[in-house]
């Protein structure tokens, strides 16, 4: 076991997979000499060479589109996009090609690649650096969308993603890249894609979140504990395919739910989760499911940032509302 931040855990996963499988190739802007803008890939080019840890021209569609060809040829490309706000130029490649290749060729060609993307707000960056538009990706048939919240899951899920026969968009909660440390195995291990993690058991309400919001939820849980409320906390970890049975099992037990995401409210993933609960656990509900989310606004510049992201207090208030219903 060794203590790792989430960022270090991701680097370790890349290191291990590069070492174990010559088909694995990283490509992205500044990932070589610089080790990436967040230093996730630091040291990897020195270790594995420029042909396998490729500094790419600034061309997000190009990076992902090239990775499509590499994946079809049997390599396992792991492109990095610097920030989620810069993923959009690659959307045509992702939606029109990455997500469709297996289906449209009836399994003759596949696209096993992992697009690593730091996402989310809270780091006081310039414009376009705080996006959390996972719902757009989850809405796209043919993609797996993964968001770890802990170092253990980050490493295990990334190794699973690289070994997956199908494409994965791997969203990295950059706000907590270095904020959490955890003792994790130094060797290879996997965490299965598609399974939620029961963070803690509780009896009164199910709180569902993922990525950086997990930590805001955990802060809220401390206050709720102090006031005698027992929340059950579910970390989805994989947004597509979603572990609906885990959500339903928990809601059937608690009868109440709050979904937390930092993405904009309208047609955010919270809406889908509420719909799933309605379809499958309506009769277990004691109260309408609440959503705590970002707003239908452009993500603000740093001066207003703190008003955009859900806070522990907002989550606590939502829990109190569903309990008082």
């Amino acid at each position: 076991m060794a203590t790792r931040t989430l960022l270090e855990a991701i680097r370790e996963a890349l290191h291990l997979e590069l070492g174990a499988d010559e088909r694995v190739i990283l490509l992205g802007e500044d990932i070589g000499r610089e080790g990436g803008v967040f230093r996730v890939t630091e040291g990897l080019q020195a270790c594995y060479g420029r042909a396998r840890v490729m500094d790419a021209p600034i061309a997000e569609a190009g990076i992902v589109g090239m990775a499509v060809g590499m994946a079809i040829a049997g390599l396992r490309p792991v492109p990095e996009i610097q920030f989620m706000g810069f993923l959009y130029p690659a959307f045509d490649q992702i939606i029109s090609h990455v997500a469709r290749m297996r289906n449209r060729s009836r399994g003759r060609f596949t696209c096993p690649l992992v697009v690593r993307v730091p996402y989310g707000g809270g780091i006081h960056p310039p414009e376009h650096h705080s996006e959390s538009t996972e719902a757009m990706l989850v809405h796209t048939p043919g993609l797996q969308v993964v968001v770890p919240a802990t170092p253990y899951d980050a490493k295990g899920l990334l190794i699973s993603a690289i070994r997956s026969p199908d494409p994965v968009i791997f969203l990295e909660p950059k706000r907590i890249y270095r904020a959490v440390r955890q003792d994790i195995p130094e060797e290879c291990y996997t965490v299965p894609i598609g399974e939620a993690r029961l963070v803690r058991e509780g009896t009164d309400v199910t709180v569902i979140a993922w990525g950086s919001m997990m930590h805001t939820v955990l802060q809220a849980a401390e206050s709720l504990d102090a006031s005698g409320i027992s929340p059950e906390i579910l970390d989805l970890r994989t947004l597509s395919p979603m572990d609906v049975p885990a959500i339903i099992a928990s809601v059937e037990k608690t009868g109440r739910a709050v979904v937390v995401h930092e993405a904009a409210r309208t047609a955010g993933l919270g809406a889908e989760i509420v719909a799933q609960i309605n379809e499958k656990a309506l009769l277990s509900l004691e109260a309408p499911v609440e959503r705590v989310s970002g707003f239908d606004t452009v993500f603000p510049l740093p001066q207003l940032e703190k008003y955009y992201l859900p806070t522990p207090e907002m989550i606590e208030a939502a829990v109190h509302r569903v309990l008082a219903f």
Partner: peptide, 24 residues
């Protein structure tokens, strides 16, 4: 041979990736 690509101009990138894989 890859399947026909309908979104105009989006597929030459795939050829670059295939070519890179061949070179690698």
């Amino acid at each position: 041979v890859l399947p026909v690509s309908i979104p105009v101009g989006s597929h030459p990138l795939h050829a670059v990736g295939l070519a890179y894989a061949g070179k690698y």
